[in-house]
């Protein structure tokens, strides 16, 4: 059976079609009470255990305060950041010359929130630039983890597959824990796994487009193609997109613009949290097959004779 019934054709009358549930550690339903992030069903990436299956981007929020509130509402434990030039205008921030100013208010807030920093290589167009940026990020943030992005097109921000694979291989060889942002191509996903990536992050639609998952069949194929965690990245527009990603078998969802640019980012963060949990539970529960014709859910026997 494929990993999702989305790819199956409707069952014809008379065919069996028994739904198949999936074992979740600790039991599917019991693991997640209301408001919990299913502690018995953690996400493990490269040996790191995450209670939340939702990752957030830090970009696009109207303010850092709203970002902090959204992070808290989301329950996420990993937040992406970009590496950029330190602003030169120091203002009044540097009264204490010995301690120095904080280079990044963003980092201070993420530290206070108790979430991990996942640096990205956003804006890089070549393997060389991405590798250099990853090494700079390792210097800056003292983490080997890198969300690898190598962009091949300005209009769509789609990944440049050959450069991405080259960069991934080089970074893995250099000891990085590489999570590549990739197309929804199951063959490329497998190649990325083969060179040592600890997860793959296929796109549902172009970055920031909010178009949802344009090719759910391919996401299901990516899920089948690799053993490493699949984190749906890019394209999420609203909560139902995140739930669909999880129902397709993705291990986690990364949301950025969908939360940051929502009219109410904090409420959308809570919605994403619930959607990821719901989708995960539904995936584990096993959906019923699609049928062309109705199947009565009330007994046919015992009907009163009324005419």
């Amino acid at each position: 059976m494929s990993s999702t019934d989305l790819t199956s054709t409707p069952v014809r009358p008379g065919e069996p079609g028994t739904p198949t549930g999936r074992a979740l550690p600790g039991g599917a339903g019991a693991a997640a009470g209301p408001g919990s992030d299913a502690p018995a069903d953690p996400l493990v990436i490269a040996g790191r255990t995450l209670r939340s299956r939702l990752l957030l981007g830090s970009g696009g929020f109207p303010s850092l305060a709203l970002m902090a509130a959204a992070i808290e509402a989301s329950g996420c434990e990993l937040v992406t950041v970009a590496l950029r030039r330190l602003p030169l205008d120091v203002g009044d921030a540097a009264a204490d010359r010995d301690a120095g100013r904080s280079p990044s208010p963003l980092l201070d807030i993420l530290r206070e929130a108790g979430v991990g920093v996942l640096p990205n290589t956003a804006g890089c167009h070549t393997a060389r630039d991405a590798v250099l940026t990853a090494r700079l990020a390792r210097e800056a943030f003292a983490t080997d983890w890198i969300k690898l992005e190598v962009i091949g097109d300005e209009d769509t921000l789609l990944p440049d597959a050959p450069e991405l694979l080259r960069a991934a291989e080089e970074l893995v060889d250099d000891g990085f824990v590489v999570l590549p942002y990739t197309t929804d191509d199951p063959v490329l996903a497998r190649r990325l796994q083969d060179v040592g990536c600890v997860a793959v992050m296929p796109l549902g639609a172009p970055i920031g487009s909010g178009m949802g998952i344009r090719n759910p069949y391919n996401i299901a194929l990516v899920r089948e193609a690799v053993e490493v965690p699949v984190v749906l990245d890019a394209g999420i527009g609203t909560a139902s997109d995140a739930a669909l990603a999880m129902e397709l078998g993705c291990d986690a969802v990364m949301a950025a613009s969908a939360v940051a640019r929502a009219a109410d980012p904090v409420r959308m963060a809570a919605a994403m949290r619930a959607a990821v949990q719901a989708g995960r539970l539904a995936w584990g529960a096993g959906r019923i097959p699609r049928r062309l014709h109705a199947t009565a859910s009330s007994p046919e026997a015992g009907l009163a004779e009324l005419s």
Binding site: G57, S58, G59, G60, F61, L64, M67, T80, V81, A82, L83, R84, R85, L86, P103, S104, L106, L107, L110, V117, P119, N120, A122, L136, A140, F141, K147, E149, I207, A256
Partner: peptide
């Protein structure tokens, strides 16, 4: 000289 730090992003 490039001095880089964390900024809000993706």
């Amino acid at each position: 000289v490039e001095v880089l730090t964390a900024m809000q992003g993706g």
